[in-house]
């Protein structure tokens, strides 16, 4: 019987579920709009626009839920980085994912109540939630109200730059999501981490 840790409180699981739902909707509708093709429409264009707008508003609201939760619960502490040892920590975790994991070595940063993320997770989650997400959200809202965008910025079209930034950052978020989903299979069993996000309990290796 492995040890079970209650790591994911209800609000966090609710937020995570909403975030996943909105993100997937944004991903599918976004790809459908960007690569819109008369002969092979993934989602009908007008539906894709409406879906993208609604999911964009939804994910922004859920982001405020995430920020509020992190501000007023202990979950916020999970995103603190130890700068001094960051490089060596990342190296150790990277080495584990690339080599140690295949020989069933003990993870260098086991999951505990105080520290549920390893350094690589922490850096990537901070990058996704505190850097990429705000850029995607701000540019997305600007595109929702294009009259707020400067016509020209540094000699380039403001709308084009905003859209470009939105798409590029959205793409990196998608890459993050794919890697995130895959890394979640690295648990006690391939599905145990997914179950954790439903019942709140993490099963240690």
């Amino acid at each position: 019987m492995s040890e079970k840790l209650y790591l994911y409180p209800l609000w966090l699981r609710l937020w995570h579920g909403l975030n996943a739902l909105f993100f997937l909707t944004l991903l599918v509708t976004g790809i459908s709009m960007q690569y819109s093709d008369i002969d092979f429409p993934l989602v009908r264009f007008d539906l894709a626009v409406t879906g993208h707008n609604i999911a964009g508003i939804g994910i922004t609201l859920s982001y405020f839920m995430f920020i509020t939760g992190n501000l007023f619960t202990s979950n916020g502490r999970q995103y603190r980085i130890n700068i001094r040892s960051l490089f060596s920590d990342l190296l150790a975790q990277g080495r584990y994912y690339l080599f140690g994991i295949f020989s069933k070595q003990i993870p260098p940063f086991p999951v505990t109540l105080k520290s549920k993320f390893n350094p690589l997770q922490r850096v990537s989650y901070i990058g996704a939630m505190y850097v990429l997400f705000p850029i995607v959200a701000i540019t997305g809202w600007a595109l929702l109200f294009p009259e707020t965008i400067a016509r020209q910025a540094f000699g380039y079209s403001g709308t084009l730059l905003t859209a470009l930034l939105h798409i590029v950052m959205g793409f990196f978020m998608s890459i993050f999501m794919i890697v995130h989903v895959y890394m979640c299979t690295v648990g006690k069993t391939p599905l145990s981490n997914f179950k954790s996000m439903i019942n709140g309990y993490h099963e240690a290796h």
């Binding site: 960007q34 079209s157 709308t159 084009l160 859209a163 470009l164 798409i167 890697v179």
Partner: peptide, 27 residues
């Protein structure tokens, strides 16, 4: 880049498309 007209679904940058496909493929 300097093209003023941005149209969702129509404005595509081939270089970015190729780069994104490479990155996606590598991932």
């Amino acid at each position: 880049l300097l093209n003023e007209a941005y149209v969702i679904g129509a404005s595509r940058n081939e270089i970015l498309n190729i780069l994104s496909l490479i990155l996606f493929g590598l991932t």
